[in-house]
């Protein structure tokens, strides 16, 4: 797997976090556009988990395979949970909730990158 896949997810999720944060700060309700952004990032996250999982299965070594697999599985759940929580009570804070989920995805992907490159 090329590290570019992970960097793409970091970039997309940070972008989504900024949009979500902006919606809350500007007192705007989360709308379908934000939902579309979440969908794009989630697709990228799923692709990342599948590609990294295949890489691991075909011989790439990481320091702790269980931790790495745990991240790959856990990261795909973050945005669906965040959206469910955000949309259960649509308010100015829904964008902020999505931003917290997106920021978590960015941090988790950075950790994945470090593990993939054998630095953690």
């Amino acid at each position: 797997m090329h590290a570019a896949v992970l960097w793409t997810v970091v970039g997309l999720s940070l972008g989504l976090a900024l949009v979500g944060l902006a919606l809350s700060l500007l007192d705007r309700r989360a709308d379908r556009l934000l939902l579309g952004g979440v969908a794009v990032v989630e697709v990228a996250v799923v692709v990342q988990s599948v590609v990294a999982g295949i890489g691991l299965a075909t011989g790439h070594r990481v320091l702790s395979a269980p931790t790495f697999v745990g991240y790959l599985a856990g990261i795909v759940l973050v945005l669906p949970f965040a959206v469910a929580w955000a949309w259960a009570d649509r308010s100015r804070w829904s964008g902020g909730v999505v931003a917290i989920g997106a920021l978590s995805v960015a941090v988790m992907t950075a950790r994945l990158l470090m593990m993939w490159q054998g630095r953690a």
Partner: peptide, 17 residues
């Protein structure tokens, strides 16, 4: 879990995970 409390619960959820 109302208002800005939605954010707090979200952060707690991340740490629970």
């Amino acid at each position: 879990a109302s208002g800005a409390g939605r954010l707090l619960v979200a952060v707690y959820g991340v740490f629970a995970l």
